[in-house]
Design a protein around this nucleic acid. Sequence first.
DNA 1: CGCCAGTTTGACCAAGATCAACGCAAGTGG
DNA 2: CCACTTGCGTTGATCTTGGTCAAACTGGCG
Lengths: 233, 233
Amino acid sequence: MHRHFGNADYRSSPTILERDGLGIAQSGQLDALVMLESIATRLSFSRDGEIYDEDDPVYCWYMVVSGTVRICKLLADGRRHIAEFCFAGDCFGVDGPGKRSYSAEAVDEVIVMRYRQSATDRLIEENPSLARLLRDAALRDLANAHARTLLLGRMTASERIAAFLLEMFDRRDRARFLDLPMSRSDIADYLGLTIETVCRSLSSLKRDGVIAIPNPQRIELRDRVALEAAVEA
Amino acid sequence: MHRHFGNADYRSSPTILERDGLGIAQSGQLDALVMLESIATRLSFSRDGEIYDEDDPVYCWYMVVSGTVRICKLLADGRRHIAEFCFAGDCFGVDGPGKRSYSAEAVDEVIVMRYRQSATDRLIEENPSLARLLRDAALRDLANAHARTLLLGRMTASERIAAFLLEMFDRRDRARFLDLPMSRSDIADYLGLTIETVCRSLSSLKRDGVIAIPNPQRIELRDRVALEAAVEA
DNA sequence: CGCCAGTTTGACCAAGATCAACGCAAGTGG
DNA sequence: CCACTTGCGTTGATCTTGGTCAAACTGGCG
């Protein structure tokens, strides 16, 4: 589970409960979050820091407070696959009992809250609405994974890049300018492409006036309609 | 959610509760299933029959009693993507509120049980262990979707075919012979390949003596070690 | 027997990977 | 302050995998 609870934006928020963006509609869920807060541990990681590793035992799950986390896996021959990027408000590492099959790493400076599974289960006993909260997050995550499956299985390089940019614009600032915390290589491993193809597709969008790239990390959206058309689906 | 509750095998079972294969460890979960049975409707579909369509409202989820179901989506330009095959004992269509984003179709002759979401929610109130059952199924499903994401993003055609065959051997008979209910075209759309590439990869495995193909639907596993090596991961 | 749908195989093509060079900004050390 | 390095990012030339197009094969069935 690596997806949003809602459209939460905790980027500048030192405590996860100072804002109420978790998509809480039903009463009782806020209680659940207050209780969650009570079992949380705050951790920080610097660039490329390892939050957990493949094959580690699963006894915690996490929520991003600030920064960007990548969920990834390394194949024997060096190929890498990034399953997910997690931003502020996203939770990750809800993996079911056993061992991790992916690792979690800090893309930039990251602060996360860590919740022990055992304590969470106890909270669920007391407050079933928390269970619903977590279940809905899992379902959202599942829908997301299926969307990526479609992207990787049936979309061309330029469609993938367009979809990626739209995803980032929607999940992050939703403003005219987008600052990407991850490298081209991260993007490539997320989209099942090579660095070079990512560059070329971005350059192509730039040539067509759909985006501008003032510097490698920064994308300016100049023609959203064209970008959406490029995804088609 | 389209994955197993466990290693259940209901293929020859007219009622889902005549056998206890749902991976039930904790007591209380059997109760939950008896209760589930009470709210189920039995439906059958013939080849290519539509169980539900994209954009249909979500008010039910399903469990396969017998036959094979494909969960799929059609893009505007005719490209098709199959997210999942579901066999006896697998549940599918647990999609979170709103509209379906995929359709469900019968690959062959299919019998399913249908459970209304509203009735299920009531059961969950009475029997929280059902919630855990459904949550674990969702998590298993999620892990599965991530595995497919890796396959589609970073594996070659022959690796995909090898992984597919191993998946089918494990999920179905686990015997020397495997009968595939789905067409080459279904396999292609599941693996993000074309029919021709599926054929060529299968022929290549046949040439290498890893499998034999007595007829197009039937695969004989001759060298499991070689097949596992072909996936590498 | 001939048709039909699904499968297999072959010849060719193109999207994207690979290999290689170059650009560019941020350190680093003299 | 200025060479020099280092790590990304970008671009170009070439190659490979898998897609496209086309033809042949197969078993079932009217």
